[in-house]
Simulated scan of single mutants.
Amino acid sequence: MSICSYINIEVNELIILDTIVVGAGQAGLSMGYWLSLIDQNFIIIDGGTRIGDTWRKRYNSLTLFTPRYLSSLPGLSLKGNPQGFPTKDEVADYLEQYAHTFNLPIQMETEVMVMDKQDDIFYISTTKGTFQAKRVIVATGPFQVPFIPVISKNLSPLVFQIHSSGYRGPSQLKPGNAVVVGGGNSGAQIAVELAATREVYLSVSKKPRYLPLSILGKSTFWWFERLGLLNAREGSRIGQKIRDAGDPIFGHDLKSLVKDDKITILPRTMKCKEQEIGFLDYGDLKVQNVIWATGFKTSYSWIKIPHVCDESGNPIHSRGLTNIKGLYFLGRPWQHKRSSALLTGVGEDAEYLVRVMQKN
Rank of each mutant, 00 (worst) to 15 (best):
A133S: 15
A24L: 08
P248K: 01
V22A: 03
G182D: 07
P306W: 15
V180A: 10
C309K: 07
F102V: 11
N8P: 06
K174D: 06
E348W: 13
P306A: 14
S318A: 07
N231D: 13
I51P: 03
S186L: 02
L194K: 00
T101S: 14
I45R: 07
K128G: 03
K88I: 05
E348L: 03
A191N: 02
A245E: 04
Y300H: 15
I44V: 04
N60P: 03
G141F: 08
I137S: 12
P82N: 11
E13H: 01
K207T: 14
I43D: 00
L76F: 03
I162E: 10
I45C: 04
S203Y: 05
L321D: 07
I238W: 08
S71W: 00
D46H: 14
T298K: 08
G235C: 12
G239P: 14
T87E: 02
P170L: 05
R198K: 09
S36R: 02
K337V: 12
T63Y: 07
P315W: 07
I277K: 10
G75C: 04
C4N: 11
T269P: 06
S186R: 01
V181N: 12
E276W: 13
E13V: 00
F85L: 00
R209N: 04
K117V: 11
Y201P: 07
S318C: 11
P82A: 13
K297N: 15
S301I: 04
A188H: 03
L216C: 10
D261T: 10
N360S: 14
E225Y: 14
Q83L: 13
K259N: 10
E199M: 12
G235Q: 15
G129H: 00
